[in-house]
Design a protein around this nucleic acid. Structure first.
Length: 473
DNA sequence: TTTTGAGTTGTTCGA
DNA sequence: GTCGAACAACTCAAA
C-alpha cells in the first residue's frame, strides 16, 4: 500500500525528515502538495510558490516521481486522497502557524479513524516549542536568554541527505500548476522578481554556499549597510522550506571551523537564524499576536487612519529617501534589506501613527519571504507592543539612519532614480538642497520627488505624546 | 521566595 | 566634534 508524503513548507528533498521516513517504509510514495484555499497568499509569495513547486516537481521527476497538486482545504484533501489511493499512511513535516496547527489536530484523528496512520516530523526548526523552556518551565519571552538556551543545545541533528531512490506510486489525478494562476499577474509586475530570484532547493543551497564562502566574514559589521551585499538573502528559501535551519547551522559551523576569521560573522548570522526560531516559538505560544498586540495596553493605542499617508508609504512617496528607497526595493524586487525594514516600519508606526497591522499586511502581500511569525513579530517589535520589543521612545530618525547606514546614498540612487544625480550632501535631505543643486540634479520638488509628508521632529513629539498615554496601563 | 542584572538594531540634549 | 545621560518603568530569567 502506498504512503502519501504531504509537502507543505518543506519544498526540498534534502534534510526532509518526513520524506526520509516515508522512503524508509519501503512503500510506494505519492507526493502531494495542497494549495490551501483558507490561506490567502500575497502576490509575491504566489510568484515564489509557483517557482518553488516547479523546481520541486522537476527534482522529483528526475527520480521518477510525480508531484500531485490539489487545491482545497487540507483537512478535506488529505483524507480524500488517502482513500482514493488506498494509502496506508501520511507523512508530513509540521508547520507552526495557528491554521496549520488546527489542521494537524483535526487530521491526525480523522486519518486514524479510517485506519490510515499519520506521522509528523520537525523539518522546520532547530528545536520545537516544546523542546525549549525556561527553568521554570515556561516559554521564553526575551530573545537573549532564548538564544543562550538554544545555542547551548548545539550541535543539532546532522542534516539528512536527499534520498537516492524513491519508489513512485501509481499516478493519481493532479491539477496542472499553471491552472492555479500563481503567476498570472496582469499587468506583469514580476520582472524585478525574475531578475532577482530563483526559487528552488538547488539555488537555496548555492546561495548558502556563496554566502559562507565570502560575505559571511563581513556579516557582523556590514549587514547593516543596505547597499552592500553582505546578507545571505536566504529568507524566502527558508520560508518555503527549500533549505532547513539545520542545514544552515551545520554549514555555518563547518565554515567557522574551516575559516576561523569568519567566527564573528557566523555567530551574528546564527543569531539571526535564531530570531526566526524565536518568532515561531512566540507565535506558537501566543497565536493571538497575529491580530492583537502582545502587550494588551497597546490595543488601546490611538492609531490614526490616514489613507493618503498609507498610500504614500506603500508607493515610496513619503519624501524621506531612505524610506522611499526601501518601499520601492520591496515593490520591485519583493524584498527589503533588514535595516531598511526597521526604518520604513518605524516611519509608518511612529511618524505616521498608522497601525502596524496595515504595514504587516502590505509586507505580506509584497515580500517574497513573507512569513507570518517573522513579520508579525517584527512589526510588533517596532511598534513596541511585542515581546522583547523596542522601547517606545526609540523612534528612528530617517535622515540620521540614512546618513549612518547609506552614507553615499548608493542604495537610494539604486531604487529612487529621480534622486540619482543629487549631491551626496543632500541625498538624505533633499528639502534642504539649494535650488541650484536641485536644478543640477534635475529635481523639481513636489513634482519629480515629493516634499516630506510629515516633519520628522514634530512627528516624533506627537508619537512620544501618544505613547505616553498608554504607558503603564 | 527574593533579589538582581539585563533587555537586537536609537535620538536628543547639554556639557 | 564628542560624550554621557536621560528618555520609564517593567518584566524576565536565573541565581
Amino acid at each position: 500500500m502506498p504512503v502519501i508524503l504531504w509537502f507543505r513548507q518543506d519544498l526540498r528533498l534534502a534534510d526532509n525528515p518526513a520524506l526520509t521516513a516515508a522512503v524508509e517504509t519501503g512503500e510506494e510514495i505519492i507526493a502531494l502538495y495542497i494549495l490551501d484555499t483558507d490561506n490567502t497568499l500575497g502576490g509575491a509569495s504566489r510568484w515564489w510558490l509557483h517557482g518553488s513547486l516547479e523546481a520541486l516537481a522537476a527534482d522529483l521527476g528526475r527520480r521518477g516521481v510525480t508531484l500531485t497538486l490539489r487545491r482545497g482545504r487540507a483537512t478535506d484533501i488529505v483524507p480524500a486522497l488517502a482513500r482514493e489511493a488506498k494509502a496506508s499512511a501520511v507523512f508530513w513535516n509540521r508547520c507552526y502557524d495557528p491554521v496549520a496547527i488546527a489542521d494537524d489536530e483535526k487530521l491526525a484523528p480523522a486519518l486514524a479513524a479510517s485506519g490510515v496512520s499519520a506521522r509528523s516530523f520537525n523539518g522546520a526548526l532547530l528545536l520545537e516549542p516544546s523542546e525549549l523552556k525556561t527553568d521554570s518551565g515556561g516559554p521564553f519571552k526575551v530573545f537573549t536568554p532564548f538564544w543562550r538556551a538554544l545555542a547551548a543545545q548545539a550541535p543539532f541533528d546532522a542534516p539528512l541527505p536527499a534520498p537516492k531512490k524513491i519508489r513512485a506510486g501509481s499516478p493519481v489525478p493532479s491539477d496542472r500548476l499553471a491552472s492555479w494562476g500563481l503567476r498570472s499577474a496582469k499587468p506583469d509586475w514580476a520582472a524585478g522578481l525574475r531578475e532577482t530570484w530563483k526559487p528552488g532547493e538547488t539555488e537555496a543551497a548555492a546561495r548558502l554556499t556563496r554566502f559562507l564562502d565570502g560575505p559571511v566574514s563581513l556579516y557582523a559589521e556590514a549587514r547593516d549597510y543596505p547597499a552592500v551585499a553582505a546578507t545571505s538573502r536566504l529568507s524566502p528559501h527558508l520560508h518555503f522550506g527549500e533549505i532547513s535551519p539545520r542545514q544552515i547551522w551545520a554549514a555555518a559551523e563547518a565554515a567557522r571551523h574551516a575559516m576561523p576569521r569568519t567566527a564573528n560573522g557566523v555567530e551574528a548570522f546564527l543569531r539571526e537564524l535564531a530570531w526566526r526560531e524565536f518568532s515561531i516559538h512566540l507565535l506558537h505560544h501566543w497565536p493571538g499576536i497575529v491580530e492583537h498586540a502582545w502587550k494588551p495596553a497597546f490595543d488601546e493605542f490611538p492609531w490614526v487612519e490616514d489613507e493618503t499617508h498609507l498610500r504614500a508609504w506603500r508607493k515610496g512617496l513619503t519624501g524621506y529617501p531612505i524610506v522611499d528607497a526601501g518601499m520601492r526595493e520591496l515593490w520591485t524586487t519583493g524584498y527589503m534589506h533588514n535595516r531598511v525594514r526597521m526604518i520604513a516600519a518605524s516611519f509608518l508606526v511612529k511618524d505616521l501613527l498608522i497601525h502596524w497591522r496595515h504595514g504587516a499586511e502590505w509586507f505580506e502581500d509584497t515580500l517574497v519571504d513573507a512569513d507570518l511569525a517573522n513579520n508579525r513579530g517584527g512589526w510588533q517589535w517596532v511598534a513596541g507592543s511585542g515581546a522583547d520589543a523596542a522601547p517606545y521612545f526609540r523612534v528612528f530618525n530617517p535622515v540620521l539612519q540614512g546618513e549612518k547606514f547609506d552614507a553615499d546614498g548608493d542604495y537610494i540612487r539604486r531604487h529612487v532614480p529621480e534622486l540619482a544625480r543629487l549631491d551626496r550632501r543632500f541625498i538624505h535631505r533633499p528639502w534642504e538642497a539649494p535650488p541650484s543643486v536641485l536644478a543640477d540634479a534635475g529635481i523639481v520638488p513636489g513634482e519629480t520627488y515629493p516634499a516630506p509628508i510629515v516633519d520628522h521632529a514634530r512627528a516624533r513629539q506627537r508619537a512620544l505624546a501618544a505613547f505616553a498615554k498608554i504607558k503603564g496601563n
